[in-house]
Simulated assay, not measured.
Amino acid sequence: MIPWIPLDTATLPGANRELRLKRRGAEFSIMLGTIELMNSRLSGSEEALATLVATRLAGRDKPRILIGGLGMGFTLRAALSSFPAGAEITVSELIPAVVDWARGPMAELFAGCLDDPRVTIAVEDVGRVIADGAGRYDAILLDVDNGPEALTVAANDRLYEDGGLGLAKAALRPGGILAVWSQGPDRRFAARLRHAGFAVEEVMVRAHRGKAGARHIIWLARKA
């Protein structure tokens, strides 16, 4: 068996914890302690986060999209393929090292998409970007942490609380969509979305592109 090779580590902002980037052959993994947060073999649900929204926003020629969390770039690449050529896509990533990994050891996964003229990378807390973007976006795609329950950075919880959902709604244009990726279902969060005034659709998708394996949840919350 090909061994895992450690490539780099990154300290999480405001926490005494670190991410570890590893490689085994052509496979990459990002770990938090003993928990695997991302693996380059599992891209299906991250891609669906973009493709499901693009389908529902078909007809908007120049949509403005905000992606929270760069990860391994699966959502970004799917967005570039799914949204029209006139789209403007901003990716907000809290951890500078993740952007460095995208341009360095994981550059082959990203295939130059960070240099696409439609893409802007903001090394910043996505909560701040949302708060500063009233009425700006057609879609906000959140793949931050493990879903509505923070795993890596405790401050991420505020994105999914009533105040954070209110800011996200204010940042959307009429008919815009807040899409949220989650490791699994969360009835309380779905109810919170509805309480915030969104029309909510819950979609179960495969972590892998195939027909087997784990299932993840994507909430598609549309602003009236």
Score class of each variant (00 low, 15 high):
residue 189 F to T: 01
residue 89 I to A: 03
residue 86 G to W: 09
residue 200 V to I: 07
residue 103 R to D: 07
residue 61 D to N: 15
residue 110 F to R: 03
residue 129 V to L: 10
residue 103 R to I: 08
residue 176 G to H: 06
residue 195 H to M: 13
residue 131 A to E: 14
residue 221 A to F: 06
residue 185 P to K: 01
residue 99 V to N: 13
residue 48 A to N: 12
residue 66 L to D: 10
residue 184 G to R: 12
residue 135 G to M: 04
residue 37 L to A: 11
residue 71 G to Q: 06
residue 106 M to V: 13
residue 66 L to E: 08
residue 222 R to A: 06
residue 192 R to C: 04
residue 204 M to E: 12
residue 68 G to Q: 02
residue 200 V to F: 01
residue 140 I to R: 00
residue 124 E to M: 13
residue 150 A to Y: 04
residue 18 E to G: 11
residue 172 L to G: 03
residue 34 T to V: 10
residue 186 D to G: 09
residue 107 A to N: 12
residue 217 I to P: 00
residue 196 A to K: 00
residue 174 P to I: 01
residue 41 R to L: 14
residue 23 R to N: 06
residue 102 A to W: 03
residue 65 I to V: 14
residue 123 V to Q: 15
residue 136 R to Q: 12
residue 99 V to I: 15
residue 37 L to S: 14
residue 109 L to Q: 07
residue 31 M to T: 08
residue 57 L to R: 00
residue 56 R to A: 01
residue 138 D to Y: 00
residue 152 T to I: 13
residue 180 V to P: 02
residue 84 P to I: 01
residue 20 R to K: 12
residue 113 C to Q: 04
residue 67 I to D: 06
residue 141 L to E: 01
residue 15 A to V: 10
residue 156 N to Y: 04
residue 200 V to Q: 00
residue 123 V to C: 14
residue 88 E to C: 11
residue 11 T to W: 12
residue 82 S to G: 09
residue 54 A to V: 02
